[in-house]
């Protein structure tokens, strides 16, 4: 993972859309933003989709995760931020079923205790890089997961074709990855993730490699798509603005060994417009989160001895 610990605040100030600033519809009867440091859910009636209790993972002497606790409810968009090397990706690999946590953990998926490996094929996972196959065109890259599930190619292609316009890829179905821009490649990867219909979607810094302007576009677009499809999403980012803008809840992770330091509910109204990042509520939330992250970044900065 690259070291991004200094880039928290000025990450994409230039990414704001100046034209959208006048449309301050959301500044009307401002809904009081409720800031809770204590998780107020869990006691509520609906069952969590996934529940992690006391999840640890060490690689030899390195403890990546230490008794991490987290709960994700169906339909939520939860974002995870934290200093680099805090074990975010390890958490994702566990949730994707690619790595087994250390013994003694509790991992409940739909209320059922499971081993991580049982989650293989249960979670749609999108890693940091698009990882498109260069010998497959847009449509065939998008249907990769469906094909693996055993859906006939023609049926999978038909399904993907219907989705192309929504992902801004209409007319590009026969293009190959090396003919696409970074943002388009990322959308193909997202489409592949969306087509693999699973209750939980894991997005690992999907927009991390994009330029600031493309990134804000992609964030708004992701919100649109998410609101339409209502999947449960866990979204890793190193960008606080992105975490607040997208999330129902933000989990701030501690420096290694990683655990959840702060769980912040984001009560900003949806649909969220681009200019919401300048609203006082947003700024207040951002300040709370930045304070928490800064503390951890300093810690990881000191211990890693950069």
């Amino acid at each position: 993972m690259t070291d991004m610990s200094i880039a928290w605040s000025e990450d994409y100030a230039c990414g704001l859309n100046p034209g959208a600033r006048g449309l301050a519809g959301l500044l009307g009867p401002a809904k009081a933003v409720q800031i809770t440091s204590e998780p107020a859910w869990g006691s509520s009636g609906d069952n969590p989709l996934i529940e992690l209790r006391n999840v640890s993972k060490s690689f030899g002497p390195v403890v990546a995760l230490d008794s991490l606790e987290a709960t994700i409810h169906p339909g939520e968009l939860v974002t995870v931020v934290g200093p680099s090397g805090c074990g975010k990706s390890t958490l994702f690999n566990i949730l994707a079923g690619l790595e087994e946590p250390d013994p003694g953990n509790i991992l409940r998926f739909r209320g059922k205790s499971s081993a991580a490996s049982e989650l293989l094929g249960q979670v749609s996972f999108m890693p940091q890089r698009d990882l498109l196959l260069p010998w497959r065109n847009v449509i065939d890259n998008a249907i990769l997961a469906l094909e693996i599930e055993g859906m006939p190619r023609t049926q999978a292609r038909a399904e993907a074709l219907k989705m192309l316009p929504e992902f801004g890829l209409a007319g590009f179905e026969n293009q190959y990855p090396n003919q696409l821009s970074g943002g388009m490649r990322q959308r193909v990867a997202l489409m592949r993730t969306f087509l693999f219909r699973r209750d939980l979607m894991l997005l690992d810094e999907p927009f991390g490699a994009l330029d600031a302007l493309t990134r804000t576009m992609m964030q708004r677009w992701l919100l649109d798509v998410w609101q339409k499809h209502r999947r449960t999403v866990l979204f890793i980012t190193h960008d606080v603005d992105e975490a607040i803008f997208l999330g129902d809840r933000v989990l701030v992770m501690t420096a290694r060994p990683g655990k959840v330091k702060l769980e912040q509910k984001i009560d900003l109204p949806r649909p969220r417009k681009a200019d919401i990042v300048t609203s006082p509520e947003f700024i207040t939330l951002k300040k709370t989160l930045l304070d928490a992250i800064e503390e951890e970044s300093m810690k990881s900065f000191m211990t890693s001895g950069h």
Binding site: N93, L98, G121, A145, E149
Partner: peptide, 11 residues
């Protein structure tokens, strides 16, 4: 990572 992605799809 490509292999891991395929495995996460249950391949």
């Amino acid at each position: 990572r490509q292999v891991a992605l395929m495995r996460s799809f249950g391949a």
